[in-house]
Design a protein around this nucleic acid. Sequence first.
RNA 1: GGAGGAGUACCCAAGUCCGGCUGAAGGGAGCGGUCUUGAAAACCGCCAGGGGGUUUACGCCCCGCGGGGGUUCGAAUCCCUCCUCCUCCGCCA
Length: 424
Amino acid sequence: MLDMKFLRQNFDEVKAKLQKRGEDLSDLDAFGELDSRRRELIQETEELKARRNDVSKEISQLKKNKEDADDKITEMREVGDRIKTLDTELKEVEEKLETLLLSIPNIPHESVPVGEDEDDNIEARRSGETPVFDFEAKPHWDIATDLGILDFERAGKVTGSRFVFYKGVGARLERALLNFMMDLHADDHGYQEMLPPQMVNRTSMTGTGQLPKFEEDAFKIEDWDYFLVPTAEVPVTNYYREEILSGEDLPQKFVAFSTNFRSEAGSAGRDTRGLIRQHQFNKVELVQLAKPEESYDVLEELTGHAEKVLQLLKLPYRVMSMCTGDLGFTAAKKYDIEVWIPSQETYREISSCSNFEDFQARRAGIRFRREEKGRPEFVHTLNGSGLAIGRTVAAILENYQQADGTVVVPEALRPYMGGKEVIQ
RNA sequence: GGAGGAGUACCCAAGUCCGGCUGAAGGGAGCGGUCUUGAAAACCGCCAGGGGGUUUACGCCCCGCGGGGGUUCGAAUCCCUCCUCCUCCGCCA
């Protein structure tokens, strides 16, 4: 959510920046009128309320002195009715304004490349050598099915499409990666480990920006106003919702594991096979709350922490800086980390690291005080996958595959795999 | 799921039956001071935070006693509703 005062004072400039995202901004023009009507109504009701407060005190005095107060009571009855009418309109106007503000995306940071879509994203860096095979690289679903470690077919029977059973060493691999990533971030990168709820309420989903615009992307619990988490970002960022932190406590760094649920609305026909696009997947998420002046340094740091996982696993990847047209709704700046997938001869997203600046913090009311008596300011929120585990499994299976169909276990992972060196 | 009890400022806590002189007593913590070589103790003083409107500013005003409605000229106090926590019972990993 954008700051109302800032939007009022810099309307044209903000609009110009938002236009670079290529989104429909036709609602935005209603802002000016709603905003001034709101302030008109506030001024009028508050004047009346001040008068009512004064006269009520007079009535209290008169009654105490056993004097007649009927005229004043009659007058105040009318004032009260007028206040009620104005308050009702004010509420309507504020609701419209709120709806409008909640639907406006974040302003891109000045360092974000201007562009229309993913083709305009800029490669920031690249790491690792892509493997060269003297045989035809198989897709991970074939490797895994042949090894008997993933079962997509029976998951289709038991649940439906875009679900999977991990079996045997496959399940072990997923669990090993989970522990490997959690340990790395908690022990080496200084994040506090967290295991959050896997359902959240509507307010939390609104706080981080999944709602109200993207409700169709989420799984909603019938008869409850709860949603299955689409990412641990939601519960973890909302952990401090409506709270004021002390400046000394920043940055707050959390690493959280959660299973994520996404309806993948609008993705029919894309990545229908394999682990890349499931309705349910596991992810280790990094979340930081930072002081505004530090948040862009934190973004680089956090992205580096996610990259470290790939470096240790010796998986080739590149880091893309998202252009204005591919930023998503909430981010001011975003890096996608993409891992090499040999069978597709392309890099695929495995982590997304964003600085939301105060966009989420304003929605969720997360603030901090620089000094004990200082005015509360909004924190900056950031997060990034560190990493999506299912996609990491896919990347390992494909990059470490051998001609005989077996898969070498990355060295860094072997302690978590009971010393196993090869999946066969 | 059933039956009770409770949510008041940073913490504890009065006020709620019987609406107005309570935007909130009293403690504690915190801050400043007196005393002291220093500290403690004692004593004196300050201490609601937050949101919003208006103003160049000082300031003025509105909201605010868990959230949201309602009754009333006027609500911490009366009514409705939701949420959270505690105790007991039931169920359960």
